[in-house]
């Protein structure tokens, strides 16, 4: 990596680092693991910088691979007990902050498979189209659509989020 490339890399990291860490947090459903995944992703990007045309797309793909690899490795170890944070409706009472929402959302995301999480995050956090998600993950657009639908339905009934979805229903909005 020459000095011009290094400066370009530094510019990308300073511009996209926060967004990548947020994506890693959602993909892993664990802030601690997310930091490791984020760091590993940037390391891989740095080592291949000169041949990467679209760094953001590269990071999405690498991050997904890292998360899948870690999920597989974890499956080979004794399963950890997943603790769901059953909170009351975070929208009731005082205005809620992202910090208060996060445990409930991450616990809910933790009930999904790594592939389901990837599809939900890429589709609704990164705002990629079904075709773009399909290309990135190497699956069909139909699989993306059906997986996303099932995953959202599963999130909808998670203890920490059920009140949020129910409140949307009672206000008469269309799903």
């Amino acid at each position: 990596m020459d000095s011009r490339q290094a400066r370009a890399f530094e510019g990308f990291v300073s511009e996209s680092g926060d967004a990548l860490l947020r994506m890693a947090t959602l993909l892993t459903s664990d802030p601690g693991t997310a930091e490791d995944v984020y760091q590993e992703t940037l390391q891989r990007l740095a080592m291949r910088w000169s041949r990467v045309g679209n760094p953001r797309a590269f990071c999405r793909r690498v991050m997904h691979n890292v998360v899948i690899d870690r999920a597989r490795a974890r499956q080979r170890r004794p399963r950890e007990l997943l603790v769901a944070h059953d909170r009351s409706d975070p929208r009731s009472g005082d205005p809620v902050t992202g910090v208060e929402l996060r445990p409930a959302l991450l616990a809910a995301l933790g009930t999904l498979t790594a592939q389901q999480r990837a599809i939900v995050v890429l589709r609704y956090f990164e705002d990629l189209s079904e075709n773009e998600v399909a290309d990135l993950l190497g699956v069909s657009a139909g699989t993306v659509k059906s997986t996303a639908s099932r995953a959202v339905a599963q999130l909808r009934v998670q203890p920490g989020l059920i009140a949020l979805f129910a409140a949307a229903d009672t206000t008469g909005t269309t799903r």
Partner: peptide, 15 residues
């Protein structure tokens, strides 16, 4: 709702 939740619950995270 999922989109909003993911955005709001992570917007205070900084690398």
């Amino acid at each position: 709702i999922v989109r909003e939740l993911m955005s709001r619950s992570t917007d205070d995270l900084y690398a």
